[in-house]
């Protein structure tokens, strides 16, 4: 390679630069592209590429479906419904709180009654109640949940908590991807991950009780 790379024929030099940039050092690259004539030829190549790039076959229907799935097609029209849903949630939470207080009162009353009668019966009652509590919790968790415009790392965090796993984010950029996803907790983590991995740029692996965003 010449000390002064520009001693070479410029047309040939630019053609080689575009085809085999690895054959030049960084300094030579800068030297070539700083030369007006070389730069003009390089820019011409870009103009040509910019113009004659083969037409892409575009399936607009498929692209729209993908887009609307990722960005919740009807979200704006559903905002009012979200407000209603939020109010309902508040009402339900209030009801749940009331029921819990009543339940605790009942439990205290039962304990007192049981203490007055037979101790072993009290234990049986409490065990049964505990089982019922557990069942109630599991039922509430098992409801499908919709994640809207939620970052992947947050979504995976929720999944990890539910399935008792750890989270490892190897790709921060992927972790910041925002998704629309309807999660069915009845599915296994492997099935959920398979669904998530159908999204473009999402690659999650399940290994050794760890969910890894790659």
């Amino acid at each position: 390679m010449n000390d002064n790379i520009l001693n070479t024929d410029r047309e040939e030099l630019v053609a080689r630069l575009i085809d085999r940039p690895e054959s030049f050092t960084d300094k030579q690259l800068e030297q070539i592209l700083a030369d007006d004539e070389c730069r003009a030829l390089y820019d011409t190549a870009i103009q040509v590429m910019h113009s004659i790039e083969p037409k892409l076959e575009t399936n607009v229907e498929a692209e729209w479906n993908r887009f609307s799935m990722l960005h919740s097609r009807y979200r704006r029209s559903q905002r009012k419904w979200w407000k209603v849903a939020a109010m309902l949630a508040v009402v339900l939470m209030s009801g749940l709180a009331y029921a819990t207080i009543q339940h605790m009162k009942q439990e205290t009353w039962s304990e007192q009654k049981a203490t007055e009668s037979i101790v072993s019966d009290d234990t049986t009652t409490k065990t049964t109640e505990n089982k019922q509590d557990t069942m109630q919790v599991q039922t509430s968790i098992a409801q499908p949940r919709t994640f809207e415009n939620t970052s992947l790392d947050l979504l995976v965090g929720v999944l990890a908590e539910h399935y008792g796993m750890r989270v490892q984010v190897m790709n921060d950029e992927a972790g910041q991807l925002r998704l629309y996803y309807e999660w069915n907790p009845a599915l296994s983590i492997e099935q959920v991950v398979d669904q998530l991995n159908t999204f473009e740029k999402v690659n999650i692996t399940v290994n050794d009780h760890t969910l890894t965003i790659e």
Partner: peptide, 23 residues
């Protein structure tokens, strides 16, 4: 490969002159 380099270089020169005649 050198012959290809030369032909591509030549083509770029001609296209440049055609696309940007004022320069």
């Amino acid at each position: 490969i050198k012959a290809v380099d030369k032909r591509i270089g030549k083509a770029l020169r001609i296209l440049r002159e055609t696309l940007n005649p004022k320069q």
